[in-house]
Amino acid sequence: MAHEEPINYYEYLRPNKKYPNVWCSGCGIGVVMGSLIRAIDRIGLDKNDVAVVSGIGCTGRMPVYMDFNTMHTTHGRALAFATGLKISRPKLHVIVVMGDGDAMAIGGNHFLHACRRNIDMTAIVVNNWIYGMTGGQYSPTTPLNARATTAPYGNVEQAMPICEVAAAAGASYVARTTVYHATEMDKFLEAAIRKHGFSVVETVSYCHTTFGRLNKRGGVVDMMRWLKDNSVGQIAAQKLDEEEKAAKIVRGVVCDVEKPEYLDLYQQVIDRAMEAK
């Protein structure tokens, strides 16, 4: 069971915005938004202590609806703005929501260096394998041989593994889940927000409007069912051989380690400098 008492979503949504939300009917970004609201509600954070930062893209519309401190920034630079915000207001819980293009292509370098610094923020990467808002161009996470409007005969580039890149770059909490597994997503987002250090949660979603249409994957229900059938937990993934594992989405916590956090280290530098005076 997800939760005992029904959560009052209206408390966390802006009343003066137009509903239903802007995303296509059945888009997984709405599921991620609901999950983020539930995670924040479960931790019991005050709305004024949370800042949600986003870049450009379908996912960039998420903070528009949520009634926290929000910032809608330029393409790919959400993490850079969020880093500045966190350093100036260290008590804020900064949550960055990005799409796969926003995080890995345009903001790829910011992503690597935010992981390397290990600053206490939460990055949620909604991976739908394509640039949905601009009409279906292939993105760094488009699977090999999948079709896109800029790759009508199939994509020849390898997909970038977001979680493995984040873990290798030095993030302290990295997890992957899908929008079908929304209860698991609640758990991972809660752990990521609680983690003292940079945490990344990759939520595998779908874009039925462009990716689904171009690759003949069917509608919303078919793509949701595909996520259910083609994702495995980590224990089940150990029993598979390499070829089978490569074809599946492996859910679970990729890394969860304790590392020195950026703002703590910076405070030590400030203290040392003050003593030297």
Binding site: A2, E4, E5, P6, Y9, L13, Y19, P20, N21, W23, S25, G26, C27, G28, I29, G30, V31, M33, G34, S35, R38, V179, Y180, A182, T183, D186
Partner: peptide
């Protein structure tokens, strides 16, 4: 939990 439009509420 899965409604993308947050349009369903289930009360136990």
């Amino acid at each position: 939990t899965h409604c993308p439009d947050l349009a369903i509420i289930v009360e136990p």
